[in-house]
């Protein structure tokens, strides 16, 4: 098991390096430090001296990838790519371009707010969607199933933006049940979390229920279900006992990949509900054109995705004994 995990981690190394090089190309080659400096100092009336000064202050005054003025290892290390991108490999995110804040510290401080929304949404979404999907699968072929599926398609066809705006308007403004947006520390934050979680749940129901229903029906087409029915078990027992256990395999392996992203936050949810998590951090950086933060978040997201993939592989082997560590 351990050697398997280590081998999977080794596979991830070239991908992480690839991501690193790709973001560096995008952020240092396509958008040169001069462009960055001009954007941050203001497009007009920027003297070349001011640009040089800004680059020097923020460590962008080196060649991009190869420094011909240096000797030995310096050819590679005394470059923007190495100075700015290589520290990402050991999670040193450096400082932001605009306010000079410590990005790593900011991320560590903000990820809990993202988790506070992400975790309940994640758990309740699985429970609710699975439950509804099982009901539909139980009623398959009936009018209720057809209409349930149709409602799912309708729910899928509505943009998440409408759910958010509608939720804020009806629950927050018209009925005054919940605060429209905001955040607080500790347990006081709960009343701010209810609305975003409800909205996110409603937004995910359509696609989720449909997917889980397919998984269930795929499972009920298998031989062991026919055997269970043939020996006289009731439909509900077949579905909820036999099929559910086995349907959990594709369900689990499908959701595991998103577990690391619970820390990562959602751009729109957090910005609509003013949650001070990583999503709103990213949005603010985008609007301020702070490329150091955007680059860090791109990198962090890739890492989390790769971790998610590894966790998925491991969970496969855990829930399905037929899959061996190979």
């Amino acid at each position: 098991m351990l050697s398997y995990i280590i081998r999977r981690l080794m596979y991830a190394v070239p991908i992480i390096i690839g991501v690193n090089v790709l973001t560096a190309l995008l952020f240092f080659r396509v958008n040169t430090p001069d462009d960055m400096a001009r954007k941050i100092l203001g497009e007009k009336f920027v003297t070349p001296a001011a640009v040089e000064n800004w680059k020097k202050d923020h460590g962008y005054d080196l060649p991009a990838f190869i420094n011909t003025d240096e000797h030995g290892a310096g050819i590679v290390t005394q470059t923007i790519f190495f100075q700015k991108s290589a520290p990402l490999l050991w999670f040193d995110f450096g400082r932001s371009d605009r306010n000079n804040i410590d990005i790593g510290r900011e991320i560590r401080g903000r990820m809990w707010a993202s988790l506070a929304i992400g975790l309940p949404t994640f758990i309740f979404a699985i429970i609710i969607n699975l439950f509804l999907a099982m009901i539909l699968a139980y009623l398959r072929g009936t009018l209720l199933d057809t209409w349930g599926l149709f409602i799912c398609v309708i729910m899928m066809s509505i943009s998440i933006l409408f759910y958010i705006i509608g939720g804020q308007f009806f629950l927050g403004k018209a009925l005054r049940l919940l605060p429209i947006s905001g955040y607080d520390t500790g347990l006081h934050s709960i009343k701010f979390l209810i609305l975003p979680v409800i909205v996110a749940l409603i937004g995910s129901t359509g696609a989720g229920v449909r997917f889980y229903r397919t998984v269930f029906l795929e499972e009920t087409g298998r031989d062991y279900i026919r055997t269970a029915r043939a020996k006289g078990l009731g439909e509900s027992r077949v579905l909820f006992k036999h099929a559910l256990k086995n349907a959990m395999i594709p369900v689990l392996t499908n959701v595991v990949v998103s577990i690391p992203f619970l820390f990562y936050g959602s751009l729109i949810m957090e910005s609509f509900f003013s949650i001070p998590g990583l999503g709103s951090f990213t949005i603010d950086a985008i609007q301020a054109q702070d490329f150091a933060i955007v680059r860090s978040m791109v990198y962090l997201g890739s890492i989390l995705y790769i971790i998610g993939l590894i966790l998925t592989d491991i969970s496969y082997t855990l829930v399905d004994p037929r899959v061996v560590f190979d």
Binding site: I15, V19, N31, V294
Partner: peptide, 23 residues
């Protein structure tokens, strides 16, 4: 496979954001 795994491991929204900020 390496190319598309690398590309798909970058969060889509952020790649779009970066790209649109630049181009």
């Amino acid at each position: 496979q390496y190319v598309y795994t690398t590309l798909s491991s970058i969060p889509g929204v952020l790649l779009i954001v970066a790209f649109m900020l630049l181009f």
